[in-house]
Design a protein around this nucleic acid. Structure first.
Lengths: 220, 220
DNA sequence: CGTACCTTGAACCGGCCGGTTCAAATATTT
DNA sequence: AAATATTTGAACCGGCCGGTTCAAGGTACG
């Protein structure tokens, strides 16, 4: 008899749970920041977009800066999980490495060019000088974690003689570079959607090069 | 009429030439935008930084938006030239391709991580959704031009059987990706300076991989 | 010297924004 | 249902900002 909420949606405003409301605010904040930029966003608009009163925001999340920080932290968890799950195929590669690498590459690219992820990088890049700790944290739980996890996968593959490298950190870094590097121009810095077919082509090219550099040497 | 105040024959180091002043404003604007972001910058501060009165800015450059556009366009010319000149070593490679590629890679990286270039990319990325034409123009005269020029160089090398590829666009794209991709994390999105030794190491790794993928096949 | 153009500083304007206050309305707990 | 906590809308405040105006100097040039 405590957590009983969610009465039928009447004609009036629907009541949301506390956690729900906080999430709604953070999502609205992220959308607004992503659309207008941090400096050009105003709290009133965020409140409107979250269907919430302005004082509510200040009550629950303090000032605009912490609102920004929290919205960014919430967004990165979303996207990082998706990137990590993209590494799954590397856990069970077939007799040929290529399909697993291509599948992983394609899924990494999809996660990389999705709306939310692009906006996150844009905002982070824009405000990085003003929020250095935020940058540090987001890179740690985002890109760095993915790169480390990929290095782990590659290490197991190298151990099983499926790859040829002594420096899995480097291999991981370069695999990601081959994937995401080309997207900067192709996606116009994240402002233009990229067709899945194009992603697949970039992933294939990346895997080609990666395998030529790190693929198993044919025994002579 | 008599539109003759600062004839093109200027260039005197007088108190301040008219053309000089415009440049001073644009440079001050770029510094300020880079430091505070577009939305958080105010014209008054730009005027102070340029040692110029506020109305002078509005007289000569219109409103804040065009000021931003002009400052960005001026900055990209600066940096793109430097990147293009980095391709020079590829014009006269020795008997081994590696040194020329490494020198080019290192110089590209130096240009890529320099203060001005990083700030330019940060600002462009931040405001890309609000200034789509600016994004288009800067990418055209910036990154795209470098990638095309590099593809030209690679084409000549491939023709001379110094490289093995049928798709120089792809090779160019991947070479640049191998160079700049790793810098995102290492330079903390352009907010942290990177030691020259680290640049050299990244360039070497990039060339290693590039040559394994595109290097001349050993005959026999 | 005179004139015609700029630049300068300062003041000004309208407007928006971050953040707070407050009383009324709503939701939640007991 | 009474009591308590929260939300809401609206108004408010101080302040800054983009952009303009204006009078008082420069400065170049005939």
């Amino acid at each position: 008899m405590s957590r009983a909420k969610t009465p039928e949606a009447g004609g009036r405003g629907e009541p949301r749970g506390h956690a729900d409301k906080r999430r709604a605010i953070l999502e609205a904040a992220f959308r607004t920041f992503a659309r207008d930029g941090y400096g050009q966003s105003c709290v009133r608009e965020i409140a409107d977009e979250a269907a919430v009163a302005k004082p509510t925001i200040y009550n629950r999340l303090g000032d605009k800066e912490t609102l920004f920080r929290e919205a960014m932290k919430a967004a990165v968890e979303h996207t990082a999980d998706r990137s990590l799950s993209a590494l799954e195929p590397l856990r069970t590669p077939g007799d040929d490495m290529r399909p697993a690498l291509e599948e992983t590459g394609l899924r990494l690219l999809r996660s990389h060019v999705c709306q939310e992820s692009q906006a996150l990088r844009r905002l982070l890049s824009a405000e990085a000088p003003r929020f250095p700790e935020l940058l540090e944290e987001i890179q740690r739980v985002g890109a760095q974690r993915v790169q480390d996890a990929l290095a782990d996968r590659l290490a197991r593959l190298a151990l099983a003689k499926r790859l040829e490298t002594t420096d899995v950190e480097r291999a991981s870094e370069q695999f990601l570079a081959l994937l995401t590097g080309p997207m900067e121009l192709r996606s116009a810095l994240g402002t233009r959607p990229v067709a899945d077919e194009e992603l697949r082509s970039v992933a294939e090219a990346a895997v080609d090069t990666f395998l030529l550099a790190y693929g198993p040497r044919d025994p002579g």
